[in-house]
């Protein structure tokens, strides 16, 4: 019996908000994997996002990409962002996160998967967030395709609009609202 190799090797990261440490010291690579079987071995052994405490993140990125704007692969990119109201933590959060991971490891965006960098889930008291990060916010066709396919994969209703934000805009925003570069 052979394990099923993935197209990419992925790293799973965990962030825990500890104000006594520097931001980057709070971010830890848990492990890397590159087969379907190893993905599940990992997934089945970690806390689901809904059980994490507020201020924590999981990130899953292609090997060699760190889950931060500054990484060379992310610098010119952006994210499709899903925000969840508090009451959806119990019902939707873990489900959305798993669907997101399956889209990534299964290369669910076809040839456009090349632009995928990774995904981040933020557990926050004011509302949880899940995002798919891509490498180039100017690749209109690619970004739009990924957004449409992602929305479909999560089973979101057509009329619900999700937005794509360039990291450059998020990083330089002066208030808490970042403008959407694309919407689907």
């Amino acid at each position: 019996y052979m394990k099923h190799p993935l197209q990419n090797r992925w790293g799973l990261w965990f962030y825990k908000n500890d104000k006594s440490k520097m931001w980057q010291d709070n971010l830890r690579l848990i492990t890397k994997f590159d087969t379907v079987e190893d993905f599940w071995a990992l997934y089945n052994n970690i806390q689901p996002p809904s059980k994490l405490s507020s201020g924590c993140d999981y990130s899953m990125f292609k090997d060699g990409i760190e889950p931060m704007w500054e990484d060379r692969s992310n610098k010119c990119g952006g994210r499709w962002l899903i925000t969840l109201a508090k009451q959806h933590r119990r019902t939707e959060l873990d489900h959305f996160w798993l669907e997101t991971l399956l889209c990534l490891i299964g290369e669910g965006f076809g040839s456009f998967s090349r632009d995928i960098c990774g995904s981040v889930i933020n557990i926050r008291a004011k509302g949880d967030k899940i995002a798919i990060w891509t490498s180039n916010a100017e690749n209109c066709e690619t970004v739009t395709y990924i957004g449409k396919k992602y929305k479909e994969s999560l089973g979101l209703p057509q009329k619900l609009v999700i937005g794509y934000q360039a990291h450059a805009d998020t990083a330089t925003k002066s208030n808490s609202i970042t403008k959407n570069k694309f919407v689907v």
Partner: peptide, 20 residues
């Protein structure tokens, strides 16, 4: 070729023991 797996295929392995 590209190793693409759809969700149902991936979900089929969730509770399988990894032997290798």
């Amino acid at each position: 070729g590209k190793r693409q797996y759809d969700r149902d295929f991936l979900l089929g392995f969730q509770f399988m023991p990894a032997c290798v």
